[in-house]
Nucleic acid binder design. Structure first.
Lengths: 326, 326
DNA sequence: TCATAATATGGTATCGATTTCAAGAAATGA
DNA sequence: TCATTTCTTGAAATCGATACCATATTATGA
């Protein structure tokens, strides 16, 4: 079934059928005939031919570092809600934290398939920027700040500082279990917020009291072990993510420390696990879903509105203070 | 940049450029000239034009009930791994548990955009089957059994029965907190497995000891409350999912019951939360990621191999027995 | 050496829509 | 009434690739 057959069956030209589909001038008489034929045949215009002709695909590429993550799936949820609402489809590209794949997808998607791209950022290298510069469709970066593109990011620094200040009301020997150091937002901003909050309190934190590692539970477990063996007087652990914090808590409990009496713990993300562990974990709530919606809206605006301008949106946070703090 | 300009710059016909792109006969001399021009211009063939001509989109539509779920994101992870490996892209359609949207997407995707569809199923209504029957591209159903299409599903019945038998070694007053009743796999199979295991032990479970509800923590909490108020002698709760079980555990603890001494609990999914709660929760491990890989492979086979036949794959399970059982 | 097969190339039709153009019919208004 | 605008229509060009066909050249083998 193509537009020619429909035209023939309805006794009109294919141009008229096209006009019917696109709300152009069509007399009521022919309008009825066409709609009847389409009804009967179940005709749907070829999306490929439309794309070729109109240069619009109706697709938005979303590049994510991994799918099975609480924060990211919440972002994608927000993106998905807005996009389907606005008539776009979501083309998902999962890079499994592989920087090369990320660049591959940026190239591949931009060159053709999509009307716009949302990049959920982790590490933005020089090569990323080189490729991004060549991209011809609008691009929005989510979860990472950048001065070159529209972006939606979180106040990681502020959140880390506020959380640390809160926690350190009842602590004096802090340590930090970090994630990937190259990650500007999670790796650096959170660490800086932690350090500055400590500094404000007159505490200088040694380098060896701040670790780095993967976004994994094991990292929390191993790092906590390393830290406590290095310095058993540590009484506070700020962890870059809830998952890492869960790992740290597991080690501490196993090693016979009491949480929060001996060591208090806090994480980031306000994820489900932070609420079901024992004691419940203090954390930072970021508005992941909302930020996804925000990014999607910005992108659609950039696509549909030619004089749309670059924007930076910094999302706020909320401290969630529960059992893992004294 | 299109194929004509490349052809002109290289001093060949566009047919030759096309052959170059598709590994047809091209002399080394022209091959070099073309590759040089493509290198210089950064030309990428229009995916739209290729789709129109070849009738292959390179897209697989994946319809999911919700994105922010541990089990589903693991399935999608598996799907994504295989598909990107085989050169397909993943077109994600999130229905937010909305049956109408699901049917919308089935229609929309099949009519054009994609080479195949994976439907992560929840409730398969008559209307679903009606629409599915009209679909022209291969379809694989994941997470739900169906006799009409290739499917990958879990041994929900067997798992529930085995888990219940195990748990009931040290219990005598069981109850069941279920999820959506219309969901064949999670709603019915798991319940039946539970009931049959009880029956095998000579225990008849009253209807009012089996509840239904949403896939949410709150359901677990509320149902546990209802059940314990109805019958304080209940000593065992089998919950349709880990999330529901977490809710039940939360109620029990809050109401002063000891877990597992007073009431033992088990869930399904072997999710992260089941491992970080206190006590750790006994659960069923399903091979979600592997099942996603399986479904993706089946679909790709159906697309690329014309004599491919319908298959049913029932995935096994593993009992994870930890602290929440006596 | 001659028939056949393999390699190489370009011209042209085609996929299925939209868009411009030209032109006729109907409605409007001065 | 006649000029002008607003509807209405179909023919033909176009988007950017691939596929078939015809044809020319080179290799192979009996």
């Amino acid at each position: 079934m193509n537009i020619n057959e429909i035209a023939e069956l309805a006794g009109v030209s294919r141009a008229t059928v096209s006009r019917y589909l696109n709300n152009g001038y069509v007399s009521n008489e022919k309008r009825d005939r066409i709609s009847k034929v389409i009804e009967e045949t179940g005709y749907m215009p070829s999306a490929q031919a439309q794309m070729l002709r109109t240069k619009k695909t109706g697709f938005i590429g979303v590049i994510i570092p991994k799918i099975n993550s609480d924060s990211i799936s919440r972002m994608v949820e927000g993106i998905s809600d807005i996009l389907s609402d606005k008539g776009y489809q979501l083309l998902l590209a999962n890079t499994s934290n592989n920087s090369k794949e990320e660049i591959q997808y940026l190239k591949k998607l931009s060159s053709n398939h999509v009307d716009g791209i949302i990049l959920i950022g982790t590490v933005l290298s020089k090569e990323h920027y080189k490729v991004m510069k060549q991209i011809s469709v609008p691009l929005v970066v989510l979860a990472q700040h950048t001065s070159d593109y529209s972006c939606v990011y979180y106040d990681d620094y502020g959140a880390a500082k506020a959380l640390t200040s809160e926690v350190m009301k009842n602590g004096s020997r802090p340590a930090y279990i970090g994630a990937v150091a190259d990650d500007e937002a999670v790796g650096q901003q959170r660490l800086n917020g932690f350090l500055d909050a400590c500094k404000d309190k007159g505490i200088m934190v040694d380098d060896d009291h701040c670790t780095n590692g993967a976004f994994r539970i094991e990292n929390g477990f191993d790092s906590a072990e390393k830290l406590m063996k290095l310095d058993p007087t540590i009484d506070t652990m700020i962890c870059a993510t809830d998952k890492i914090a869960i790992g740290a808590m597991a080690y501490l409990k196993q090693a016979g420390y009491k949480v929060p009496e001996d060591v208090q713990i806090a994480g980031f993300g306000d994820s489900l696990i932070s609420k079901v562990c024992d004691p419940k974990m203090s954390s930072i709530h970021f508005f992941y879903k909302t930020s996804g919606e925000e990014a999607a809206n910005m992108l659609v605006d950039a696509i549909e509105n030619s004089q749309s301008v670059r924007k930076e949106v910094k999302m706020g946070y909320q401290i969630v203070k529960v059992g893992s703090l004294r």
